[in-house]
Computed example of a mutant assay.
Amino acid sequence: MPKAFAQIAFTPAARTFQEQYGTKEAYAKYLEGEEVTGHVIEDDHVTFIESMDGFYLSTVSETGWPYVQFKGGPTGFLKVLDNRHFAYADYRGNRQYLSAGNISQNNRVSLILTNYEKQQRLKIWGEARIVSLEEGSDFVLSLMPADYKAEPERAILIRTMALEWDCPRHIPKRRTVDE
């Protein structure tokens, strides 16, 4: 378990529950030491991220309400740019703009990427930035999958703050039609 994950996720409330249920000592070691680990996109993360055809994005509004949205596209629509950044073209959808509105006020996001067939799940915490077509049309268009008939409105650029492989124990094994 990386330290970056523990620093973000093990809030005082979470640690109270860990103490109550007897796991505090088991997890305390992930908060020790100076070196922060688990915030850099490694090779296994790149392969997994770029194999996705969808993920769940969590944002929080300026009024404090969480919002979770499924984001989908063809396999590979998530593009890893370097060891701390990945991005995707944000396509026109139902035009409610809840995630974009939330990101514009609070850049903290959390993503869950799941491969049900392999029973793998990657949790990512990051800081998101909206790149409009006006600001960076070449960048936004470079993220568009070839031959995908969607209209990009912006790009979402995410800087990773923590990545954590989740326990596969309760991930149901499923296959897509293609699989």
Rank of each mutant, 00 (worst) to 15 (best):
P2F: 10
K3I: 03
K3V: 00
K3R: 04
F5P: 03
Q7G: 11
F10A: 01
T11E: 05
T16H: 13
F17Y: 10
Q20I: 00
Q20T: 13
T23V: 01
T23E: 01
A26V: 01
A28Y: 05
Y30W: 10
E32M: 11
E35Q: 11
V36Y: 10
H39S: 13
H39T: 00
V40N: 10
I41Q: 07
E42C: 01
F48E: 03
E50D: 00
E50K: 02
L57I: 01
S58D: 06
T59K: 03
V60R: 02
E62I: 09
T63E: 14
T63H: 13
T63L: 12
W65G: 09
V68Q: 07
Q69K: 14
Q69C: 08
K71T: 05
T75P: 13
G76E: 00
L78K: 06
D82R: 07
N83H: 14
F86Y: 08
A89G: 09
Y91W: 14
R92H: 13
R95F: 12
Y97E: 10
L98R: 10
G101V: 08
I103S: 06
S104P: 04
N106A: 01
V109S: 09
L113I: 08
Q119P: 10
L122G: 02
K123Q: 15
E127V: 10
A128G: 01
V131I: 09
G136N: 00
S137W: 14
S137P: 10
D138M: 05
V140E: 06
L141T: 04
S142G: 01
K149C: 09
A150I: 12
E151A: 10
P152N: 03
T160V: 07
T160N: 06
M161W: 12
A162S: 05
W165I: 03
R169M: 13
K173C: 06
R174V: 07
R175D: 10
V177A: 15
V177I: 15
